[in-house]
Design a protein around this nucleic acid. Structure first.
Length: 194
DNA sequence: TCTTCGATTGTCT
DNA sequence: GACAATCGAAGAA
């Protein structure tokens, strides 16, 4: 198994570019000292303080402070009283932007995911942002870790590139109370695998 | 397959 | 004190 990781430069671009290129990449997490991984197939971009759907819209707070750091680090937050969300911070230092990983296709460590997710069906193990964090054991302790270090508990590997004809772009979801034009920005990216 | 609805707590105003 | 970048169970069709 390769130990290659996506380098820092990959993340030092706009959240839209990174979200698009993250499709097909591999998210790896260490669970009980064993790798559990999946191919990223759905992402969303959150772009700066002006983006009214972004957590940084009200300025820097204790929760979102990681987003103000340099790209290539993990921003993990808790919501709805019971769910963890995993994001990749992108862009330069002091520009708050991130890409939310919304879904992955399980690749490695399936027996471990089964232990965590059973009796839920395999098709629904990682098809939502809170589902994949549960399957990969991602919690607050992963907030702020360096995704460019293969020794980190969570990092990303180059996978296969997804051709333009297999990329579906739609508005972001789960942000009904966000005002326009932000609510309709086409910043959600899905890979049409299969 | 689709729709509705309760769960549950950190964070910010 | 309100709300949240959601999930999954349950019931209807």
């Amino acid at each position: 198994m390769s130990s290659k990781v996506l380098d820092r430069d990959f993340y030092l671009r706009s959240p839209q570019e990174v979200a698009r290129d993250l499709l097909g990449k591999i998210l790896v997490s260490q669970v009980h000292h064993r790798p559990v991984s999946g191919i990223i197939c759905e992402t969303e971009a959150y772009d700066g303080e002006v983006d009214q759907a972004c957590h940084a819209r009200t300025g820097k707070t204790r929760r979102n402070s990681v987003m103000y750091g340099m790209g290539g680090f993990a921003y993990v937050y808790f919501t709805y009283g019971m769910h963890w969300m995993f994001n990749c911070v992108v862009g330069e230092r002091n520009y708050p932007a991130a890409v939310l990983i919304r879904a992955i296709q399980p690749l490695e460590g399936l027996d471990i995911i089964y232990d965590i997710r059973s009796p839920i069906g395999e098709k629904h193990w990682c098809d939502g942002p809170a589902k994949l964090t549960k399957s990969l054991g991602i919690t607050a302790e992963h907030n702020g870790i360096d995704l460019c270090n293969p020794k980190s508990a969570v990092y990303l590997q180059p996978g296969s590139d997804i051709g333009e004809e297999k990329v579906i772009i739609t508005p972001r979801v789960g942000i009904d109370s966000t005002p326009e034009p932000w609510k309709s920005k086409p910043w959600r990216f899905l890979a049409d695998l299969c």
